[in-house]
């Protein structure tokens, strides 16, 4: 597929889509949306790139190895954040009682560890969507 119009438009749009995805992830604790929705937008942007530029090009900018690390890393970060609470004498997945700062409600820096969880979920969902897409392209269930 070699459509110049399509490629140019995707190149123009991609930064904005990804910026929007990151915005949704980072504002997950104070507005509707969050890690899953933002991660889905990020993943969709990668899929859009993959559809326009083909599998090889995508593999060059977002290699499978990076994807695997992002996938496992995102989920591991979630579990480790959960265990953090146990270390500090609270329950599993405790938020404020485990010593995370509460901040001012309504500001970006608030909500204890919810923003960190959102980032973990965003990374996981974005890379997983990309992996699922390439798995479908190659027809490899796993």
């Amino acid at each position: 597929m070699d459509n110049r119009l399509l490629k140019t438009m995707v190149q123009l749009l991609l930064p904005f889509i990804q910026l929007y995805g990151v915005f949704i992830i980072l504002h997950g604790h104070i507005t509707p949306g969050g890690g899953f929705s933002g991660g889905a937008i990020l993943g969709a942007s990668l899929i859009l790139y993959g559809l326009t530029f083909g599998h090889q090009e995508t593999e060059a900018i977002f290699p499978e190895k990076v994807s695997a690390w992002a996938e496992s890393g995102g989920a591991m970060m979630y579990v480790l954040l959960g265990l953090f609470g146990l270390i500090f004498g609270a329950s599993f997945l405790s938020n404020l009682t485990a010593g995370f700062a509460a901040g001012t409600p309504g500001q970006i820096l608030s909500g204890g560890f919810i923003p960190l969880l959102m980032i973990a979920i965003g990374i996981k969902v974005g890379s997983t969507l990309m992996t699922l897409f390439s798995a479908l392209i190659e027809g490899e269930p796993s």
């Binding site: 695997a68 690390w69 496992s72 989920a75 591991m76 579990v79 265990l83 146990l86 599993f92």
Partner: peptide, 20 residues
Amino acid sequence: ELFPVLQMSLLVLMALAGPL
């Protein structure tokens, strides 16, 4: 009483660490 949570966390971490 923390053991059950730790067991489940360990299993998830093992599952995730495998592919790496």
